[in-house]
Design a protein around this nucleic acid. Structure first.
Length: 187
DNA sequence: CTTGGGATGGTCT
DNA sequence: GACCATCCCAAGG
């Protein structure tokens, strides 16, 4: 399965957030292969988006959001969790990224359970920090090029069927009128 | 099923 | 020193 090209990510962050729904995340650790279909995303932009990490300025933490599209922006939060984003922005924008909030597990479900330390399938990868645990994504993956077939990349997945559900982004207090949380239902 | 509080530490002011 | 783009568990309906 081919990885998505760089040009896929060189569009407005909100468009890419919707576009990533149904795409496939592939993760290889040792000889294990884990994959899942993206089912929930959020767009975070730049100066027009007070909720974004990139709102104020480029820092050591958020610098990936200002750099090459199609790479991973991973951040550490709440003292114990990582969240996984894909850098995406139109060429004229300075910064932007799409937070991957949930996936539908496909391959390597047993490995995911082991990585999570939980076995309940319903709660395996239905949250941004849950899926990074399941896929063993940490700060080590900061800046990983997701357009190259490596240990972590994104490829074509499913044809979308059904509607994209739209909502305010989760866990933020500002810019609640930007409906930049996108979700699909699988089965 | 829903709700509330605790865990836990990097990052920014 | 406050704030988190979160998760989990225990308690209540």
């Amino acid at each position: 399965m081919n990885s998505l090209p760089r040009s896929f990510y060189a569009r407005d962050t909100v468009i890419v957030a919707k576009g990533l729904l149904g795409k496939k995340i592939v993760r290889k650790v040792g000889n294990q292969r884990i994959s899942g279909i993206i089912t929930e995303t959020e767009a975070y932009r730049h100066k027009d988006d007070p909720a974004s990490h990139a709102y104020r300025r480029k820092t050591e933490r958020n610098k990936a959001m200002f750099e090459e599209v199609g790479r991973a922006y991973v951040y550490f939060t709440y003292g114990m969790y990582f969240c996984f984003n894909v850098v995406a922005k139109k060429p004229k924008a300075e910064a932007g990224a799409v937070l991957i909030r949930a996936i539908y597990p496909e391959k390597g479900i047993e490995v995911m359970k082991k990585n999570r330390g939980k076995t309940e399938e319903k709660n395996l990868v239905n949250g941004p920090a849950k899926l990074t645990q399941a896929l063993n994504i940490t700060k080590k993956q900061y800046g990983t090029d997701l357009t190259k077939d490596s240990n972590l990349f994104i490829s074509e997945g499913l044809e979308l069927q059904g509607k994209i559900m739209v909502a305010p982004r989760i866990g933020i207090k500002t810019a609640l009128d930007n409906l930049w949380n996108f979700k699909i239902q699988i089965n």
